[in-house]
Computed example of a mutant assay.
Amino acid sequence: MTVPVRFAALGDSLTEGVGAPAADGWHGWAALLAPALAAEPVGCRLRNLATSGVLAADLPAAQLPSALAFQPHFAAVLAGGNDTLRAGFELRRTALALDTTLRELSCSGAVLLTACLPDPGALLGLPSPLARPLARRMAAVNAVVHGLSRRHGAVHLHLADLPWRTDRALLSADRLHPSPSGHLLIAREFHTLLTAAGHHLGSPPAAVAAPPAPSRAADLWWLATRGTAWVARRSVDLLPGLLALAAAETRQRLRGAGAELDARSAAVTEEVLAELGGGPPSGDGGRPAVVSLPRSPSGRAAKLYLAE
């Protein structure tokens, strides 16, 4: 390749780089990965189209046209997390938007990068009646992303499996976005996967000067200042729907029928995957991939098996 490698990054605040501040804005995982996508002296041009708060349904109109015009050699599509935080969450709409975006980029010849995302309720430590509906939604979105990644031949990172909850240094003070160390981990994981897939890249992303893990005092300060505003901005749309979900969750648990919600979510997810027509993805090493939904009050866990 004699021209600079072109890398387009689509998605939300995770890909925008929130959590890794720089003099000119953010310097997140996409910015760290870009220089490593090409061996010297070719170099790489990054067009980061990701914006905070974007929904999957926004991608085809808001980011995809610019990405296609850029004619990228590599294109990352990481979205869907914000969808789970909206009162009007609808898995089919999320899935169709992701499918359209990935299909168009794949047809343009770009190498696709995708990732499944961690559960925001677990990262924030929300109480069970609030956390379980979000976990259920995130499991459904991730199942769809797994299926679409296989359908479109994407290089897929199991980002949700990285140690976000056990290594506090990987998260910024808001507990939702990676810290500089977390962004570096994502960049290096993508580099490893691309290299294993046979792509000729440059050296792995270099280490960044990362601050120490936020202290408890820093967490509380963020919550009292920026965190309160973050919750308030989302309360208008999210909180009423989330409270309704929590109420339904509580009623089901009192009836001892919490597993019904898990089973219903799994059934809808299977239907959406079938409608997309891409077939379910297989797990690593030929093992069936399994998406575990939150445990019911009876201790049973509904699982969506995505085996061939």
Score class of each variant (00 low, 15 high):
Arg86Lys: 13
Asp58Thr: 07
Leu96Gln: 15
Arg150Pro: 06
Val144Gly: 09
Ala87Gln: 05
Asp58Lys: 04
Ala140Lys: 03
Thr94Gln: 08
Thr114Lys: 08
Pro133Ile: 01
Ala110Glu: 06
Ala87Leu: 04
Leu112Ser: 08
Ser108Asp: 09
Ala131Ile: 13
Leu78Phe: 13
Leu159Trp: 11
Ala143Arg: 03
Val145Ile: 15
Ala67Met: 05
Gly109Trp: 09
Gly88Cys: 10
Ala69Asn: 10
Leu85Ala: 12
Asp83Leu: 01
His73Arg: 11
Ala62Tyr: 11
Pro118Gly: 07
His158Asn: 14
Arg136Gly: 08
Asn82Pro: 04
Gly81Thr: 11
Arg93Cys: 11
Leu91Gln: 04
Asp161Leu: 11
Thr101Cys: 09
Leu102Phe: 06
Ala110Asp: 11
Leu159Val: 10
Arg136Lys: 03
Ala69Cys: 07
Gly153Tyr: 08
Arg151Trp: 08
Leu126Thr: 10
Phe89Trp: 09
Glu104His: 13
Cys107Ile: 13
Glu90Thr: 00
Ala67His: 03
Arg137Ser: 05
Thr94Asn: 08
Gly80Arg: 05
Ala97Glu: 02
Leu105Met: 03
Ala143Ile: 00
Leu68Arg: 01
Val145Pro: 05
Cys116Gln: 15
Ala69Met: 10
Thr114Trp: 03
Cys116Ser: 15
Gly121Ile: 01
Ala97Met: 01
Leu64Phe: 07
